[in-house]
């Protein structure tokens, strides 16, 4: 069924489960594991992982992420790839660990081999088909860091041809209808501690974003960043809005 399956078995992947996914959305971790396994990858979950350090760094305390970067690099150094279901956390490791670990005697081993799971499946595993079925209409949450730092889709600001890796993956799912909201990649207003420090603006951004997803007629907001989804979920629940959130990986693993 999968043309790459044999080749994939020789790959050793360390599964990176970001802290808040571990605590709030373990089902996203489970779906990630199942999806990778189903694509023939040798997946391992190194115990004792915690947080990549992004929340502290984005709030202005990069120095407090230093120890975490060292731990992370040690935990994941041995794998061929590090794969996690969070574009934002992954891109933090990719873009900032080199700098955070600049004073170490060795090079940071993880920054070049870490992937967001959607990016990894799309760019590395490249399955021609999936077993998944999800007979629902979903609106894609194009997250800022996924789009503008990880290039999961063409940013709306740039004059480049349209592409969207999440859409490509979702289109392998049977029965699904995929749409994107108006202002397809405007920020939903999460931004880590921004959501607390600038809660009024963040809340307004969140309500506006959720409304645009609702306006598509979708039943689900589907994204590659559980943090954006967590923020929007809090807005949905507070205001009793008629839409749900789901991680893309949960849809891709829906038949497993």
């Amino acid at each position: 069924m999968y043309e790459n399956q044999n080749r994939n078995e020789t790959m050793k992947v360390g599964l990176f489960i970001p802290c808040y996914i571990n605590a709030v959305y373990p089902q996203v971790g489970v779906a990630s594991y199942k999806l990778l396994k189903s694509l023939g990858v040798d997946v391992d979950y190194p115990l004792d992982q915690t947080c990549c350090g992004q929340p502290m760094a984005n709030a202005g305390f990069e120095n407090e992420a230093h120890g975490l970067a060292k731990r992370f690099d040690r935990l994941f150094g041995q794998y061929d790839y590090v794969v996690g279901p969070s574009a934002s956390c992954v891109v933090f490791v990719r873009d900032h660990y080199g700098n955070l670990l600049a004073e170490e005697s060795h090079r940071c081993a993880t920054e070049e081999k870490i992937y967001d799971i959607c990016e990894f499946v799309h760019d590395v595993l490249k399955p021609a088909s999936l077993r998944a079925s999800f007979p629902h209409k979903v609106s894609i949450q194009n997250s800022c860091h996924g789009v503008r730092l990880m290039h999961l889709s063409s940013p709306s600001e740039l004059n480049v041809p349209y592409y969207n890796k999440l859409r490509n993956l979702l289109s392998l799912v049977e029965g699904i209808e995929v749409v994107e909201p108006e202002r397809p990649d405007e920020c939903c207003g999460f931004g880590g501690m921004f959501a607390v420090e600038e809660h009024a603006v963040s809340g307004q951004m969140g309500r506006d974003k959720v409304q645009r997803h609702i306006d598509t007629g979708a039943e689900y907001i589907a994204g590659a960043d559980s943090s954006c989804l967590m923020h929007q979920n809090g807005i949905i629940s507070r205001n009793n809005l008629p839409i749900k959130t789901i991680h893309v990986v949960e849809i891709l693993a829906s038949g497993l």
């Binding site: 489960i17 808040y20 996914i21 571990n22 605590a23 709030v24 959305y25 373990p26 089902q27 971790g29 489970v30 979950y45 115990l47 959501a195 607390v196 420090e197 809660h199 009024a200 963040s202 809340g203 969140g206 967590m230 923020h231 979920n233 809090g234 807005i235 629940s237 507070r238």
Partner: peptide, 21 residues
């Protein structure tokens, strides 16, 4: 201040870590 705009996320009964163990 999170609670001014949102409901709190619901923590899972079992974390991924525990499920794995």
């Amino acid at each position: 201040d999170w609670g001014k705009e949102h409901d709190m996320p619901q923590f899972a009964k079992e974390s991924f870590n525990e499920m794995w163990k």
